[in-house]
Design a protein around this nucleic acid. Sequence first.
DNA 1: ATGGTTCTCTGACTAGCATCAGAGAATGGA
DNA 2: TCCATTCTCTGATGCTAGTCAGAGAACCAT
Lengths: 294, 294
Amino acid sequence: MVARVRRFNRVVTQRVGALNDHFLSLGRPLGESRLLWEIGTEGRSVRSLRAQLDLDSGYLSRLLRSLERAGLVVTGPDQADRRVTVARLTQAGLAERDQLDRRADELAASLLDPLTERQRDRLVAAMSDVERLLTAAGVRVAPADPADAAARFCVGEYVAELNSRFDAGFDPARSIPAADADLRPPAGLMLVATLNGAPVGCGALKLHGTEPAEIKRMWVAESARGLGLGRRLLTELERRAATLGARVVRLETNQTLTEAIELYRSAGYTEVEAFDAEPYAHHWFEKTLPADAR
Amino acid sequence: MVARVRRFNRVVTQRVGALNDHFLSLGRPLGESRLLWEIGTEGRSVRSLRAQLDLDSGYLSRLLRSLERAGLVVTGPDQADRRVTVARLTQAGLAERDQLDRRADELAASLLDPLTERQRDRLVAAMSDVERLLTAAGVRVAPADPADAAARFCVGEYVAELNSRFDAGFDPARSIPAADADLRPPAGLMLVATLNGAPVGCGALKLHGTEPAEIKRMWVAESARGLGLGRRLLTELERRAATLGARVVRLETNQTLTEAIELYRSAGYTEVEAFDAEPYAHHWFEKTLPADAR
DNA sequence: ATGGTTCTCTGACTAGCATCAGAGAATGGA
DNA sequence: TCCATTCTCTGATGCTAGTCAGAGAACCAT
């Protein structure tokens, strides 16, 4: 299995990676081209570019200066926060970015070109699988403090989504509360999933000693669905609940969250009588954790 | 379709490419590590390294000098041709190469690690597909002179294979000859397929004006089977035969070449009476070229 | 207002990757 | 034997990528 992955790595870096770099440099250093691309049509703050491309601030500054000298970029202070510099593409910069776009299309087409129709279809299908699964493999799940920016972001998205999906909206003040302290060891814990540094999912646990633990705040970003992330978060929460003493985990959910309900059922949860008075819940589930996980 | 390929390129170069580079440099410049790897356990001539890695001779020399200084490599003149330098790994060099090997395994494992069993199986299956099809897309098919080294190599392999597969061996002297001149414009032509510079297949055409053209010397290297290369060569030969005036193409083959017979049938060839006295043939095929190809 | 923090920029520097020109040894064919 | 060619190496040189330290402006909480 590992040998197959290595073969894949070799072939792909040779055929795609090298070509990619070569195609995307239009007589310009690769770093500059990449930066030009990432600035995008709308312009971006230097701050966010630095975070995403993971570049040294001095280095990035120099790259920008070089693009500016070439007349492809203009920079200026951000209105809201004048420490922040915003970079925007000029007409010439936009034109060059378009050209990069076209080159990338050509590169992709050149990969497909020598193949028959059927081979192309199979290649594209296989590429989609690989891309999806590599993305899934790139998601990191780790405990986080509920007050962290990433955790806050996730919970905010979670609330917003419930509010848009529940028939009568969702007001967290009316729901059974889960304060930060409840989701922080030793009372509980919170897991946050990140992809390339951006938060894309979360899940939390309220512990009650050997009494059933409660699963809370299960959320997966729109962009990260179909990667099996919900199941991964759920499995990880169960594992941690078990090692922290729980023999049973339970949770409640709303009837509009059909994919979540499906997940719980397929993960071995069974529906039980209401065990609390959560006003937004229609279904209550619980699962006895396997003995070997405890 | 192109957009999907581009997504794939982005995700893969990010997750595989970058990691690859990072993993494979053990405190040593990437170029040196790669060179160390390519020298292999058996040692290689500087000449072949330069050809494969496509490096400047001065640059390569410097890299070798650096590895030599580090005690990982020894170089010496080749016995057969004392202009050529042969590089061999020392014990230390072999040990470092082993370590690179292990790192590459780790990298591959780290890609699979966060996934479930099922996801891994799917990922590996999709990777195999992508790898196979990208390899297929990397094969270049181009006309070549029958006297070129690559063409000679292919025909040599072709003869060797027939000799090993035919029940009574194969002696080209007893077969109907096809001299270089017959396979060179305007009398005919020869196509050679190469993968990363190495010849992996061939096919030839003997033209007879508007009379049926003959297909000869169809061969695909063991290592390049399953890529649809036989079909691609055949299609390309037919196309060229049509543009050069032929309305029909024909060929003869031996009963032991079952996959070739299958290819001809599925490509629309029908079996006909013997049209020549080729002693090694059991089946004679012909195909009328579609009018729009002429 | 003040002190700590955030953000960007400049200067100084290093390592790596690469190319070109030319020298010198070995080879092979006329 | 001689001349063209092949092969490798050294020297000179330039660009790219990236790091580190520190300065100065803007911001924010107190």
